[in-house]
């Protein structure tokens, strides 16, 4: 026991453990979410989806797919820019994994308790854009490049109202640290910020949620990989493990933005019923189940709504979400001033 304690006290080991802990969640979650997405889409279209692999409702379909991807040949187009082409999937995954450094899974665990947490989250997501551009440009394929251009324009512009919506919460709490934001929502579920300063933080939540859908390229904002126009968008030329990295990054990103929505507006790891079933271990349970609820919501929307056109996309961002976000901030600020 003491030797284990000694190993844990080693700063290198401790740093490595803290850094790798989110992977323990991301990998099984991604396998589950891919299977779940197929099931959700199938049932929404009155089908059954994969039913054979593994027995009960094809539960091991994603594992079989993973093995297939691992064994697949790693194709590299002859006219691609080899170095950048091989690097790009990892840059994208690093971008989405870096966001997990500040996500508070429970009261006892957060990768890095930095006091600029939410600001850091907004900043590192830009790495994903660079990775997407890198992969698309080095593929030397026009569909890829089109997809990446759309993706970059979309992510960069939707970042702005999303950040403004986050700012409303930051103004209420007075801290950028995600743990502080969670602690400010203590108690029963009506203390969650989605109901706070009604209706201003609820509007902020709607704006953030829409922007987060755009940021992870989910329908109705999935024009970067619109399969009916662009084959597969920015990862058209990728196969095997590198394609799997893109896929993993996409699902990791989906959970990251859901986790931030949960943290900012739905009480993070707080139990919805006051002190009932609260504590660090139950905190993980509440946090992950709220996050998975958002994942389901994202899938539900994906298989319900049609995709927006490029000009509609920009219209929604600059002429609808942006003014609402600004007015919202002004009202939250006024409320805070009067409340003082």
């Amino acid at each position: 026991m003491e030797s284990i304690q000694a190993i844990l006290n080693n700063p290198y080991v401790f740093a490595a453990l803290m850094a790798l802990a989110p992977l323990l969640w991301i990998l099984p979650y991604a396998l589950f979410a891919i299977w779940f997405e197929r099931k959700v889409s199938a049932h929404m279209q009155d089908r059954l989806g994969p039913m054979r692999t593994g027995g009960w409702h094809g539960w091991s379909q994603s594992i079989a797919d993973l093995v297939k991807l691992l064994l697949k040949e790693d194709l590299i187009p002859a006219k691609s820019k080899h170095g950048l082409f091989m690097l790009a999937p990892y840059v994208v995954f690093v971008g989405s994994y870096a966001a997990y450094a500040v996500i508070p899974f429970t009261s006892a665990y957060v990768g890095s308790e930095i006091n600029v947490g939410i600001f850091y989250f907004v900043a590192v997501s830009s790495l994903v854009v660079v990775g997407i551009l890198m992969g698309a440009w080095s593929s030397n394929n026009k569909w890829s490049l089109f997809g990446a251009m759309r993706s970059a324009a979309q992510i960069v512009s939707y970042e702005i109202p999303g950040t403004l919506a986050i700012l409303a919460v930051v103004m209420v709490v007075g801290s950028l640290s995600l743990q502080d934001i969670v602690r400010a929502q203590e108690g029963w579920f009506w203390n969650w910020f989605v109901f706070g300063k009604f209706p201003f933080l609820f509007i902020a939540f709607l704006i953030y949620f829409l922007c987060s859908l755009a940021e992870v390229n989910r329908t109705p904002f999935d024009i970067p990989e619109a399969e009916s126009e662009l084959v597969a968008g920015y990862h058209t030329e990728y196969s095997g493990m590198r394609f799997a990295m893109f896929y993993l990054a996409e699902y990791a990103n989906m959970f990251a933005v859901s986790a931030v929505a949960v943290t900012l507006f739905f009480g993070g790891w707080q139990s919805p019923f006051g002190t009932f079933l609260s504590g660090p271990a139950w905190g993980v349970f509440w946090f992950l189940s709220k996050g998975m609820g958002f994942i389901f919501l994202q899938m539900w929307l994906r298989w319900t709504l049609p995709r927006l056109r490029v000009d509609q996309l920009m219209y929604v961002n600059w002429k609808v979400l942006m003014p609402f976000a600004f007015v919202n901030i002004i009202f939250v600020g006024l409320w805070m001033m009067i409340a003082q």
């Binding site: 930095i114 006091n115 600029v116 600001f119 850091y120 907004v122 900043a123 590192v124 997501s125 830009s126 790495l127 854009v129 660079v130 551009l133 440009w137 490049l145 251009m149 970059a152 960069v156 970042e159």
Partner: peptide, 24 residues
């Protein structure tokens, strides 16, 4: 800390993407 995050947000998220767009 604030400066570091701002550096990433402005230079990676803004300026670098602008440069890449220009070049591409």
């Amino acid at each position: 800390d604030f400066l570091a995050v701002t550096q990433v947000l402005i230079y990676v998220g803004g300026i670098l993407i602008l440069i890449l767009f220009g070049v591409m």
